[in-house]
Every structure is written in C-alpha cells, then in structure tokens.
Simulated assay, not measured.
Amino acid sequence: MNQLKMYIVSDSIGETGDLVAKAAISQFRKDFESTAVKRIPHVESTDQLQEITEIAAEQHAIILYTLVKEEMRTYIRLECERRNIPSIDLLGPIIDVIGSTLNERSSEEPGRVRMLDEDYFQKIEAIEFAVKYDDGRDPRGLLLADIVLIGVSRTSKTPLSQYLAHKRYKVANVPLVPEVEPPEELFKIDPDKCFGLVISPEKLNSIRKERLKALGLKDDANYAKIERIRAEIDHFYSVADRIGCRVIDVTDRAVEETANIILNIKQKRER
C-alpha cells in the first residue's frame, strides 16, 4: 500500500486543515498508519513556503493550506504548480466569495477564529458569573469579581451586572438593607473595583410604588415609603464610606450610561 504524505500549511495553528484532512482520509482508509500528515503552523513568510514546497516535491506529498493572506496563497499556489505538487486551498475560495458578496476586503489576520471563540467563551463565563453572584447570593464571588456593585433595592444592580457581563467583566452585586449586616468580604475587596449606585429618594419612591402595583400589592407598604427609603440611602452611604468606593448617581440614567461611566473610570485607572 502506497504511503500518503500530506502537509497542512497554516499561518495559524493549522487545526482547520488538520480536521479537513482527517475527514477526507477517513473516507479511504480504516486507519492512519500508512498516512503521514504533518502540520506546519505559523507560516509567516514566502521563504518558509519555498522551503516547504521543495521538501513536499521531494517526498511527493500533497499540500493543504489555510492561509488568510492573498499574497501567501498566490505564492504557494504558483510554487505548487511549478513543482507539480497536488495542492488544495481550503480558505481562499470561501474568502473570495464572501468578500465579493459583502463587497469588502478580508482583514487577512491569522488566528481570528480562535480570537472570536475565546471572546465568545469569555462573555459566556462572565454572564454565568453575574447570574451566580447576583443579589449577594454568595459573598465569595465578591473576591473573584472584576466589578462589585452595591446599592439599595431597585437601583438597577442586576441589569447593570448583565450589561457589563456582555462586555466580558465578571460582576457581583450586593443589595444593602439597614437590618442586614453586609458580608465581610465586601470590606476585603479593592475599593477601586467597587461602585455604589445611589438614586434620589423621590425617584426611588416612584419606582418602588410602580413595582408594588405590578405585583398586585398596595403602594403604601413600608418598602415604598419615603422615610424608609431615606433610611436605606443613609445606610448605603455609611457602607460606601467604609469601603471607600466610588458612588454613582443613577437617577434618570439608563443602564448603558451608568455602565459607560464605570468602564471609563476603570480604563482611566488602568492607564
């Protein structure tokens, strides 16, 4: 049985070409013992391509290539034609069709698919984190979070946590109630990663009344009374002062606007 030799040439890690090669080979042989598949990743120059085609020609190998730069694809195609090497361009035709359909050029950045995958999984991890450590469910999350939000009830802590999670930040939030001592972990975190959310008593009074009505309850409950709200806000400030965190007034602010304030503060501190 003739030995099949195949080179997988890539400007990234060559995983795509490797999977395609194995899928094709499996249609002809029950095992890969008589098949030599060599992955050549991170190819960055035409000098490397010239060396690869020289060796492939000597060994009568097939070349599969996944190169995103048009210049590199053209070079290896011409070299393979000149040396009579069987070759398959796995990405070029697809990139060309998509480019002509969208009427734009590709970025020609190797490894973009892995970057997109990592970005996606980072976002999912952050969203799951925000759900797990929402509303002070597990104080241990405060020590693991990138951002910690504190505030009284109905200051948009949960939607803000989810919005920031979609920006790939791990966020935990803690509701503050005068009758409940804040978790001790809250006073162990870096104050710079903690943000207090405050709102005017009048606005919060209106929001809480609407919330009670939506639940089918009377709007004169203690939860919505202005005196109770002021007591909660006073307690909030005492906790925020102990932590030493930045306080943001969210009165009449959209979640996106508050999130941008937090992100701008973080970016300035990081710089």
Rank of each mutant, 00 (worst) to 15 (best):
I85L: 03
T155W: 02
T16A: 10
Q48F: 06
I76V: 13
D134I: 06
Q162H: 13
L186P: 00
V113M: 15
Q162M: 15
Y237W: 11
L142A: 04
R168C: 09
H42F: 15
Q27E: 05
S107M: 14
I88K: 01
D134F: 13
R211T: 08
A224M: 07
Y7C: 03
G244Y: 12
R83V: 06
E128K: 12
P86E: 05
K225H: 15
K170H: 11
I147L: 08
D192E: 15
P139F: 05
K193S: 10
E202V: 14
Y120I: 04
S107R: 12
V68A: 01
E51L: 10
D31C: 09
S10C: 06
V177K: 10
D192H: 15
V152K: 03
F28N: 01
D192S: 15
V239E: 09
H235T: 08
P183N: 08
T35M: 04
Q27G: 07
K225V: 11
V9Q: 05
L116M: 13
I265G: 01
N103A: 14
I55M: 01
K132S: 08
E71I: 05
K209C: 13
A57F: 07
E118W: 04
K38Q: 15
G244V: 10
A61K: 08
S26E: 05
L142H: 04
K218L: 11
R83C: 02
L142Q: 01
A231C: 05
L19V: 13
D220F: 06
G196C: 11
D96H: 13
T53S: 04
S206L: 07
A21S: 07
N2H: 11
V43F: 06
P201N: 01
A221F: 05
F121K: 15
E79F: 12
H60L: 07
I88Q: 00
E128P: 02
F187Q: 10
P182R: 02
L67D: 01
R29P: 00
A61T: 08
L4G: 03
K213V: 13
E181L: 12
